[in-house]
Nucleic acid binder design. Structure first.
Lengths: 307, 307
DNA sequence: CAACGTTACGCTCTTCGTAAAGATG
DNA sequence: CATCTTTACGAAGAGCGTAACGTTG
């Protein structure tokens, strides 16, 4: 059994069961991939792929199990490589963050600025996506660190560190009647068309649930993944905006006014997540602590070991 | 990075940092091992082993981390091999149980008998040892299944399944004064010399603690790892025996009488443990269920996945 | 018949074992 | 100086790429 063989079956599976595409992706020849898979199947004395003649049409049951284990092996090999890099070039490498728009736009910038200054030789990449995409990318090792509020804590592969708590606010155009009608209530919100986050972003849609519990059904005229889009449409008078408090900036958001809504919704916690079995580079600990000073190396390690 | 290189460093570490012994154990040549380790260190661009000239004198810090990860990789490779065997020869292979004397002698025999009848082509091995040895063997993959009462639940690598609960009894020679002095109390026990299990076997020494809480200090004249030894010395009149209830057999243990002591001590739970990341062969599930009918395949899988 | 997977073959690079040399305590 | 590790070298073997062949839809 060779590591290459495991790489091959993994890539074939990833490429939708195509040996040709896998060979391409791995910069090698089709026959080589084909051969090695055959050798592996022969050695294990079972079929990993279901075939119709010569066409691969699926994974067999043992194939699925083997693929799972193979991915584990290959991840661990990557980790070993990382250890090498960590100890020879402790401030060089790459860091990929997966996160949502709101975090990337309003919360991460200071930490990112500090990071690139402190670690100039680390190539930093930020992937933006929905919470479930964020989780998926960290699980698939496409990102080292994921930051999101939803969809993280229920993934057994991930260690989730509580990052910070936040709540929502309502933003309205200047002079809106809601401004003269304190205090703000859920019911008053439903009187106006609402612009808020796309449902893919609110996970179990904590917000919708809060309304539903009071038998209220607000009119969502537009849902966006992007707080800036929401604010733009609020400015246009499309409706009132319901968004994370940190996404309102009194200096930049001229023409808009903010009404705190933290008494109306339960607070949300945003998490920093890493794969439990990942080997974390020193600068990854560094980044996490720049985000959240309370999460030092020992705190992160403790969360990783937690079962 | 090759799998062989990982095998080599693992074996060198296991053999107390001797390349020669490692080469022997792996049935290959010293120069080969030496070379491959050099190549690995060169590729990772760091030293795995601390050297004094040419002598290996320890692991470096990255070396320790790499070794850990390497062991993980190699275990997972073994698991993949197992999958192959499971699906081609589902009732062939080997099963190694690690357990304590009491379990092996009094609790396992029926299940073992059933197992060898049902799976005649599985080579069954039973390792006997102290609870911590049992745990260690399962963790080191030297045993597939561990069965013991102590030292199991606090190992994060192990999934522990509650097997059964039991309590203690006092055995005395026929005609002993305690027999006419009901009810049995802790205090009465301390009046006589006590023969019981070796402390290595009672872990946090639940029993001693129970006495200590009442400020009682029994006179332990002999501690044994073996219920049969205990009973032998009780028969000789050395003292009264304090042991697991299941270790008393009214038919075989002529000359001895038993007094229930379950009201004096909290009950103990014996666990069946497997490595969380092990791939379990079908017959291993079979064995577990023969021991404990409530632990069917789904119950075991659930316990494995539990974080 | 077009796309895909497998077989065949020759080349290269790696790996392994033996023999010999160099360190270490 | 006995033991253990490293270096050197030659032989065997594994993996890869090109080209040709066989299947599938």
């Amino acid at each position: 059994m060779k590591l290459h063989q495991l790489r091959y079956i993994r890539e074939v599976a990833r490429q939708g069961l195509s040996i040709s595409l896998a060979a391409d992706a791995l910069h090698t020849s089709q026959p080589g991939v084909s051969k090695q898979i055959q050798l592996l199947e022969e050695e294990l004395d079972l079929q990993i792929f279901k075939r119709n003649g010569k066409r691969l049409i699926g994974l067999t049951e043992p194939g699925r199990i083997i693929l799972d284990r193979a991915e584990q092996v290959l991840r661990e090999m990557d980790n070993i490589k990382r250890v090498g890099e960590e100890f020879t070039h402790d401030a060089r490498g790459s860091l990929t963050i997966a996160t949502t728009h709101t975090q990337a736009r309003y919360r991460l910038p200071p930490a990112v600025a500090g990071f690139v200054e402190h670690y100039p030789d680390v190539r930093l990449t930020i992937h933006q996506g929905s919470p479930s995409q964020v989780a998926r990318q960290v699980i698939a090792n496409e990102a080292d660190i994921g930051i999101a509020t939803e969809a993280m804590t229920d993934q057994p592969e991930l260690a989730c560190l509580p990052y910070y708590q936040w709540n929502r606010c309502v933003v309205v155009p200047k002079g809106h009647p809601l401004l003269r009608d304190a205090p703000l209530t859920l019911k008053k919100i439903t009187r106006y068309p609402v612009v808020t986050y796309d449902f893919a972003f609110t996970g179990g849609s904590l917000m919708t649930r809060t309304f539903a519990e009071k038998n209220l059904h607000p009119n969502f005229v537009l849902t966006a993944i992007d707080a800036d889009v929401i604010k733009t449409y609020v400015k246009l008078g499309l409706g009132i905006g319901l968004l994370a408090s940190m996404a309102y900036d009194p200096e930049r958001d001229v023409g808009l006014e903010m009404l705190d809504a933290s008494h109306l919704f339960p607070p949300s916690t945003t998490y920093i997540a890493v794969r439990r079995d990942a080997y974390l580079r020193g600068y990854m600990y560094g980044f996490i602590q720049m985000l959240a000073p309370h999460l030092d190396r020992t705190a992160v390690d403790a969360a990783l070991k937690e079962t």
